[in-house]
């Protein structure tokens, strides 16, 4: 797949939350306000692209030549849980203190299924190294986009009256469903028309 194809595919057509449904409960907490969702999205995109590249290199350097493809899940989860604390320490050294708020996200990243999902997807679709890096970054961007849309909706809904049983999680899930409905406009036909 071309690079433009990967961008359109992972941000819109196969959005990791809205159409592949690789999502866990924390995204309901994280979409509470726009600021949190943007900063989490940036950390997630960086980690996803890094992990996708690392798992691609390990898969093609060690697992494939030795015929150990069946260890891919085990290797990838070890890469993710190993890289995350490392990046946490690096961030603490490089970034000035005000940005250290972002460090609270790292424990969430290490057990985020979107990161493992993108590593598995890019290896199983046999992408090249650059394509996996791009796929990780774009999947992260798609995740961020969805979180921002959801956070915007939730901030707008604070002013509205919501029936008591729907307050909190149910209305958030239903809003996510309506965003997913809107994202159905981005389908494979769109990608083909855009790129040809």
């Amino acid at each position: 797949m071309s690079y433009a194809g990967i961008i359109v595919s992972f941000v819109f057509v196969n959005n990791i939350i809205l159409s592949q449904l690789i999502v866990e409960q924390p995204f309901l907490d994280l979409s509470r306000n726009i600021r949190t969702s943007v900063s989490f999205g940036i950390v997630l995109s960086a980690m996803a692209s890094l992990c996708a590249l690392a798992s691609w290199s390990l898969y093609h350097a060690i697992l494939l030549p030795l015929g150990l493809e069946y260890l891919q899940t085990l290797t990838f989860i070890m890469i993710i849980t190993g890289l995350t604390p490392l990046c946490d320490i690096c961030t603490a050294k490089i970034l000035p203190a005000p940005h250290s708020r972002a460090r609270a996200f790292f424990p969430l990243i290490s057990t985020n299924c979107a990161v493992l999902g993108i590593c598995l997807i890019s290896v199983r679709a046999s992408y090249t190294a650059l394509e996996s890096l791009l796929a990780g970054a774009c999947a992260g961007a798609g995740y961020t986009l969805t979180l921002v849309f959801l956070a915007t909706l939730r901030e707008a809904m604070k002013k509205e009256w919501i029936p008591q049983p729907f307050q909190g999680i149910p209305i958030t899930l239903i809003s996510a469903g309506l965003i997913a409905l809107a994202f159905m406009a981005f389908d494979t036909a769109l990608r083909k028309n855009l790129l040809n």
Binding site: L18, S19, Q20, L21, P165, F166, I169, P170, I171, T172, L173, I174, A176, G177, L178, A180, L181, M184
Partner: peptide
């Protein structure tokens, strides 16, 4: 996929 979120939201409610 959209239906998954909708059904889950209504069931939770």
């Amino acid at each position: 996929p959209a239906g998954a979120f909708l059904i889950m939201g209504y069931l939770k409610a």
